[in-house]
């Protein structure tokens, strides 16, 4: 018997506000809901009559599509707001946009925004449930949830495992969410990258900070490669892309430094041949494709459990 049966908050803004039980609940629910994809009719009516808006201020076909499929499999209606084409570029504030959406009686707003905390601001001003699909360099909670799910599916458990994330930790919302998620579930998280892309202060946030790849990979159960943004060189944060690759790219030789059978993960999209060698990305222990598939089930679970929580609060007489 789980101790919780819905999400307590109106929104999913990050991993940080989630309890360990809530994370467990999302993963268990996702496990069950992954079956829907195997049904002859790949949808259930749970969220019939509900509307979800994909509000993406940064392009991300992958995440947007994943949320869209999750909503469709739960029978919710989906509206994609193309930010470039809408009034948001013409000086409309985020709050204006929020109020417009509110007037359209939207139930879920899935938001991707380049500014850390933007979904938090939206959530404070809306009755709808806001789901953070990546805010600036802050969090990307559903990515971390699907990463947890994938590791649990492949390794049987998360507790006691060692996850090493390699790359531009400093500017990565995936790294932050994974750090909180995996440590909450009892795993050990190592960060590895050059000092300009990995502040020692991450130690205070619970990560093991490594600048040497071999020591970071030794004993790791998961080798998690982050995407490298080439503009970091222009900003003076790495001597050159080539120098980065020489020191930190995950090759088939280097992946052997980790535990035998260690999983290889990447949040996508990959720069093949830069941060990850093609033969590693496509190798036998790569679960990069599974991550994508698992993303849908995890997002279904999030949508469903937010709805369950909201209905429950409404029944208890609370304001939603």
């Amino acid at each position: 018997m789980t101790t919780v049966d819905s999400l307590s908050a109106k929104d999913l803004l990050g991993i940080e506000p989630l309890s360990r039980d809530e994370i467990q609940l999302i993963l268990d629910t996702a496990r069950t809901l992954s079956d829907v994809a195997k049904h002859p009719i790949k949808k259930v009516p749970a969220l019939r009559g509900r509307t979800m808006v994909n509000l993406f201020y940064e392009a991300s076909t992958r995440t947007r599509t994943s949320f869209e499929l999750a909503a469709v499999r739960l029978s919710a209606d989906v509206v994609n707001i193309n930010v470039q084409a809408s009034s948001v570029v013409k000086g409309e504030t985020l709050l204006d946009t929020a109020r417009t959406l509110e007037a359209m009686t939207v139930d879920f707003i899935v938001m991707r925004h380049g500014s850390s905390g933007a979904p938090h601001m939206l959530a404070r001003n809306l009755k709808a449930s806001v789901i953070n699909a990546g805010d600036g360099q802050h969090e990307h909670p559903t990515q971390a949830l699907l990463d947890l799910y994938t590791v649990r599916e492949k390794l049987g458990s998360i507790e006691g495992k060692t996850i090493t994330l390699i790359g531009d930790i400093q500017h990565s919302r995936v790294a932050r969410s994974d750090l909180i998620a995996f440590t909450k579930m009892g795993a050990k998280v190592r960060f590895c990258g050059p000092p300009t892309l990995l502040s020692a202060d991450f130690g205070a946030l619970g990560a093991e900070v490594h600048h040497d790849l071999k020591s970071a990979l030794t004993g790791a159960d998961v080798v998690y490669v982050l995407r490298l943004q080439f503009e970091r060189h222009r900003m003076g944060l790495m001597p050159s892309v080539k120098a980065y690759t020489q020191q930190y790219a995950i090759t088939s030789e280097r992946v052997k430094w980790a535990k035998p059978g260690a999983l290889v993960m990447h949040p996508g999209p990959m720069n093949r041949g830069v941060e990850i060698a093609p033969e590693v990305a496509d190798g036998p222990t790569s679960v990069i494709v599974d991550q994508v598939a698992n993303g849908i089930a995890v997002r279904m679970a999030v949508l469903y459990l937010l709805e369950a929580g909201r209905t429950k609060r409404a029944a208890a007489g609370g304001v939603s």
């Binding site: 905390g117 360099q137 932050r176 202060d201 946030l205």
Partner: peptide, 11 residues
């Protein structure tokens, strides 16, 4: 610039 900015992902 410190632990809180790092946590919030703010420059």
């Amino acid at each position: 610039e410190g632990r809180v900015s790092l946590r919030l992902g703010l420059a």
